[in-house]
Computed example of a mutant assay.
Amino acid sequence: MVVDAGVADALAAFGAHQDDVKAAREQAPEPAFEVYEENWEAVQVFSALSTQWRMSAFSGFGTARLVHTGLDYGAIEPVYRLIGIRRDRRAAIFQQIRVMEEAALDALLPE
């Protein structure tokens, strides 16, 4: 796990042990990545939807787990409006979001 400067500052503010704060500050940040201009709006919307994942709980024989099942599509339209996405771009961006959602589900689903 990579801890950014904000998390390290929060650790210090909440009185974490100095060694822990130092270790957090020494962690290398994740490498930056490029987003093509034509994908930027979709990335912004997908990022804004990061708390809108639907999850299902499964249990049996003393074990339980939560599984991501997809984004809450009902949250997309308000995000479009709040970010200022033009109406004529929304359908295309939705298709881009679905591609990112599918890739995220592949990474999030347990093996």
Rank of each mutant, 00 (worst) to 15 (best):
P29G: 04
M55R: 10
V79D: 04
F14R: 09
R81E: 14
I85T: 02
G60F: 04
Y80F: 15
D20I: 09
M55P: 00
Q96N: 06
S50N: 12
A48P: 08
G74R: 14
F94M: 13
M55K: 08
D19A: 14
L71K: 00
L49G: 01
G15Y: 05
V43W: 15
I83Q: 07
P31N: 06
R87Q: 14
Q18V: 14
D88K: 10
E41Y: 06
G62M: 08
Q18Y: 12
N39W: 09
G84V: 11
E77I: 05
D88P: 08
Q18P: 11
W53V: 01
W40N: 15
A48W: 07
H17M: 15
I76F: 08
A91E: 15
L66T: 02
D19Q: 04
R89E: 12
M55T: 14
A32S: 12
L71W: 00
L66G: 07
M55H: 08
Q18D: 13
A23W: 15
A91M: 10
I93E: 00
A91Q: 11
E34A: 15
S50E: 12
T63I: 13
A13L: 12
T63P: 04
F94H: 13
R87D: 15
G84M: 03
D20F: 11
S59M: 09
S56L: 14
V21D: 01
D19H: 08
G70H: 04
H68W: 13
L66P: 00
T51M: 09
R98T: 15
G62Y: 02
G84R: 09
D19M: 02
E34T: 15
G74K: 15
E41K: 12
D19L: 10
I93S: 00
P78K: 12
L49E: 05
A24F: 02
D19N: 11
L82M: 06
A57G: 11
F14Y: 08
V43N: 04
F14E: 09
V79G: 04
A28F: 03
A91I: 10
E41H: 06
L66R: 03
I97S: 00
N39C: 05
A28D: 10
A48I: 03
S47N: 09
R86W: 10
Y73I: 04
K22F: 15
S56C: 12
R54G: 04
A75R: 08
S59I: 03
A32Q: 13
V45Y: 00
E38H: 12
W53Q: 01
D19G: 05
S59W: 06
I83R: 09
T69K: 07
Q52S: 14
R87Y: 09
Y73G: 03
L66F: 02
F46G: 00
E26Y: 06
R86S: 06
R98K: 15
E77N: 10
G70F: 02
E34M: 15
R89L: 13
D20R: 11
